[in-house]
Design a protein around this nucleic acid. Structure first.
Length: 126
DNA sequence: ACCGTGACGGTAT
DNA sequence: TATACCGCCACGG
């Protein structure tokens, strides 16, 4: 058997770490591509994160919509329907999106702060 | 192997 | 705050 048929080279272990990091972002908060990369152990892997999400199946349960640019911008280019989907999903979680961007000072995920406010293993507040 | 491109990011202006 | 550059990394022609 060709392992590539079961575990395509297009989705390696690095991608798995990236997806795991994305899955860790709680509802109502957002993380930047670079932040996710750092969590996945890829200091300069922001673009790698973007690639992983771009390739993820559109029906995935992954909270990919919680990932935005470091400055809060919705990074998906206009014209791609996923851009509107992301905005709608964020708003559904009470995350404000103005002028195509999220106020990072208010919605950026801070794992340490959440732990301090709510304790471990608990969803973040809005 | 070369080169353009991008769901990026940090710095300078 | 916005724009311009440039470094970075992987992909595809």
């Amino acid at each position: 058997m060709d392992a590539s048929l079961v575990r395509p080279a297009s989705i390696d272990d690095t991608d798995r770490r990236i997806l795991a990091a994305v899955a860790a972002v709680p509802a109502g908060r957002v993380a930047s591509y670079g932040q996710v990369a750092a969590l996945a152990g890829l200091p300069r892997g922001a673009r790698r994160v973007a690639r992983a999400l771009r390739r993820a199946p559109s029906g995935t349960a992954l909270p990919w919509h919680r990932i935005v640019g470091a400055d809060g911008r919705i990074a998906i280019p206009p014209g791609d329907r996923h851009r509107e989907i992301q905005i709608a999903r964020l708003r559904a979680e009470a995350v404000t999106v103005d002028g195509g961007r999220v106020a990072m000072a208010r919605f950026r995920w801070r794992p340490d702060l959440d732990a301090w406010l709510w304790g471990p293993d608990r969803a973040a507040p809005r």
